[in-house]
Amino acid sequence: MAREIDLTQWQSELVDAFRWGEQERARALVMTLREAQPGRVHGVLEQMLQSPDEKVRQAAVFALGELGGPTSARRLEQQLLLEESRGDPDASSVVQVITQALSQLKSASLRATLIRRLNRLGAGMPEGSDVDDVVYALWRKRHPELIPPVRGALERLSPPVSEGLRALLRLLESSPQELRVWIEDGSVPVEQKTKVLTVLDEEVPDELAPVLPSFIFLAGSMIEMASRKKGQERRFCDRLFTLLLLHRERLFPTLPSNARSILREVARRMIAAPEAVRIIKAANLLEYVGRREDADLLEEHKPQDEVLGRVYEEAVEILRKLPHA
């Protein structure tokens, strides 16, 4: 016998969980309803998609993405067109969640949906964030067949809106060796390399993991400038730290010793940088590439802010447990 669930309360809890970024709780709620009342779950979400409240629609879209399957995929495609036709900021926030959900679904046919979305953006004057959302989704569904439509959109859109597309095309067209040469090419603007890091935040394929030391060596070559003032060099280091920490379990063990040494030095320099330039994530980074003696540096430069200071304290606790060099 199906377990009864208070659907009004369930919807409220789902919206609340998604609103506050508690994806595990939201995911558990979706699975609970699917298991308890499998025949009703799509009907409940359909009702939520009709809501004038964009937060309710966002939560419903997230749930459809978690359910997966052809039915959810078709409904997400329909909702994408509906939200685009609304053309208001609330609808744009729902489109963002739909794009993310489509990127998570396994069907290869959804590439066509994302390409159509990209073509519609290319025909107008989109916000850079809207283009980037599609870029990240397409990277998750990367395939050589994406190269022509991405090139076409790149021809229709101008910087800075098109920078994400340029980064995506670079990744789609380049072999690991070609990408390594491109990273090391001093004539390529740093901001283009930073954008590639941002796209890789979504996913770092196994074949590109060996390329990461080239990004680290580049950060090492720019640390003098990055640690003195805010600019493209500092932003590059910040994005590199973000990428490595997002995929810490996979990436840190793959780094060769020379890359780890340079990364440690870059992190140390950013910890000792002037407060306005400092990158707090450098403390987290030292938890993975630091040495016991780095704890002294962290204590010396610990921020006065209680929350930020705690980040340093946690790193110190980890480093103090390391053996002496």
Rank of each mutant, 00 (worst) to 15 (best):
Y312M: 03
R120G: 03
L157C: 10
I280P: 00
S129I: 14
P126D: 03
R3K: 12
E293D: 13
R156H: 08
E24F: 07
R57C: 03
L243H: 07
V316P: 06
D132M: 15
D6C: 13
L154W: 13
P160H: 11
R75V: 00
E24T: 12
A276M: 05
A259Y: 04
R234D: 02
S174M: 08
T99M: 07
A283I: 05
P126G: 04
I262F: 06
G290H: 11
L179Y: 09
E233Q: 08
Y312Q: 02
V311C: 05
G21W: 15
E35K: 14
L76D: 08
E313S: 14
P70S: 14
L14K: 11
D90C: 10
F217N: 00
R170I: 00
P144I: 14
F62H: 04
Q50I: 00
P189Q: 12
R19A: 14
G87F: 13
R34T: 12
D90Y: 12
L14N: 06
V135W: 04
V188D: 01
K193I: 13
V211I: 09
A91P: 03
R86H: 09
E306A: 15
L240W: 08
M225A: 13
S129C: 02
A60R: 04
I5D: 02
L102H: 10
D305L: 09
Q50E: 14
R27Q: 15
R278T: 08
P253W: 03
S129L: 12
R278K: 10
R269E: 13
K302E: 11
L49F: 11
A123F: 08
G43K: 02
P70M: 12
A273V: 07
D294K: 06
P52Q: 03
A2S: 13
H143L: 09
C237P: 05
H324T: 11
T242P: 00
H143S: 15
K106M: 11
S221I: 01
F215H: 05
T242R: 14
V277S: 00
S261H: 05
R142A: 15
E54N: 12
K193W: 02
E178Q: 12
L308K: 12
Q47W: 10
Q100T: 11
P148Q: 11
G164V: 05
L255M: 08
K106E: 14
E191M: 08
M225C: 01
P274H: 10
P70D: 15
V135L: 04
